[in-house]
Amino acid sequence: MLSRTADSLYWLGRYMERAGNNARGLQVTLRMASLTGAVDRRNNAWRALLTVSGAAPGFATTGQELTQDAVVRYLAAEAKNPSSIRSCIEAARSNARAVRTALTVDMWEAVNETWSESRRSTDDTFTPDHLPAFLDWVKSRTVLFNGAYADTMLRDEAWSFVRLGTMVERADNTARVLDVHHHALMGAEEGGTLAHFQWQAILRSVSALRAYHWVYHARLDPQRIAELLILRPELPRSMVACYARIEETLDGIATLHGGRRGEAHRLAGEMHARLRFGRIGDIMEGGLHEFLTATVNRNLELGRQIQGFYLQA
């Protein structure tokens, strides 16, 4: 497979996953803001969302005041923000078009129809009355895309690079969500009302609220939330589950290339092992923020190593 083809497939997976993550984050923050508006006059929930999405520096350059409307439009529709939902859909379609013959019909239709419908959005789409429906639609389209490539692609290199991009992006998002809200998880077990809302928001950001109750059959507890999202392999968006799939996928690609491996494979294996054999008590004692910040940084390095080893001609 040509490097440029692998690059387009990898970023197709990343951009579609990012669009869904941003939609989920916006939904959760809208809910959080409506419930805690009286105690969050500094708009900390919106500031946190910008940090999770990696868009805080870009938003600062706009000179806009940090308000709900400004952040929503920047993360959902701003063309100058490469991580906005509309920008992600545009980039995903561009990458899909470049490798059209490597995709199944279902994959192409999922991406192309999403792009076509997104271009019909107007300023009214992002008003309070219409935004929830738009975010639900984005989530459903990303789920459709994930299902299309999971159910219709041959398990070959093309599938491997789409999956690799999806999992790298997903691991990064889960780590960032936890890191931004680490202060809410490092307090006492019995938090106040605001802490409880924050715990719910963390779980909703990765679609894991119901999974938490299914696994633990207990009230929300910050250490258990951290354990679920970091160390429980049965949760698809947990960090350990993502890195297990990253390592597995990289090993599969290496096998197709005669066993050739590089720093990306070593780093993925190291990160997976660290999580697979980790204990939440040790992580919390050593500093949750430090652990998560290190993970985000290593994930960035993993992305660079994948790019250099496989995706650059």
Rank of each mutant, 00 (worst) to 15 (best):
T255G: 08
H217C: 05
I202M: 11
I246V: 15
A208Y: 08
E248K: 15
P236Y: 04
G262W: 08
W199I: 03
L229C: 14
M239F: 09
A241G: 02
A226T: 03
A218T: 04
H217D: 13
E248P: 04
W199Q: 02
E247H: 14
R210H: 14
P222M: 07
S207C: 13
R210D: 15
A211F: 14
W214T: 14
H257M: 12
M239D: 04
A241S: 14
V240H: 07
V240Y: 10
E247K: 14
I225K: 04
L231V: 11
H217P: 01
S207N: 11
A211I: 13
P222L: 06
L250A: 03
R224P: 00
L235A: 00
I202C: 10
M239C: 13
A218W: 06
L250T: 02
D251S: 10
L250E: 01
H213D: 06
I225C: 03
E247Q: 15
R260W: 09
C242E: 00
Y243H: 12
R224S: 03
R219N: 15
G252T: 11
R261G: 07
G262E: 07
L203Q: 06
D221L: 05
R219T: 15
W199M: 09
S207P: 03
P236C: 01
G258I: 09
H213N: 04
I253L: 05
Q200C: 03
I202L: 10
L228F: 06
P236N: 04
P236W: 06
H213W: 11
I246C: 01
L209S: 08
A201P: 09
H213I: 05
A254P: 11
R260I: 04
P233H: 09
S205E: 05
L209H: 10
L228C: 07
L231R: 10
Y212R: 02
H257L: 11
H257E: 14
V215H: 09
L209G: 02
S207E: 12
G258R: 09
T249G: 07
Q223M: 12
G252F: 06
L229N: 10
Y243M: 13
V240W: 06
R237I: 00
A208H: 13
E248N: 14
E227L: 06
H213Y: 15
L209C: 03
S238H: 06
I246S: 00
R210E: 15
M239P: 00
L256D: 13
R260Q: 14
I202S: 03
A244Y: 10
L203A: 01
R210Y: 12
G262V: 04
V240K: 08
R261A: 11
H257P: 04
H257A: 09
L229R: 04
T255E: 15
E234N: 04
R219Q: 15
Q223P: 01
Y243E: 01
V240E: 08
E247N: 11
L220K: 02
H213K: 08
S205H: 10
A226P: 02
H257V: 07
V215Y: 06
A208C: 12
A218E: 12
I202W: 09
L250F: 05
W199V: 01
E234W: 12
Q200A: 05
R224G: 00
L229P: 01
L209T: 07
S207R: 09
I230D: 00
A241I: 00
W199C: 01
S238K: 07
L203V: 04
Q200E: 13
Y212E: 01
G259Y: 13
R237S: 04
D221H: 11
T255L: 15
L235G: 00
V215A: 07
R224T: 00
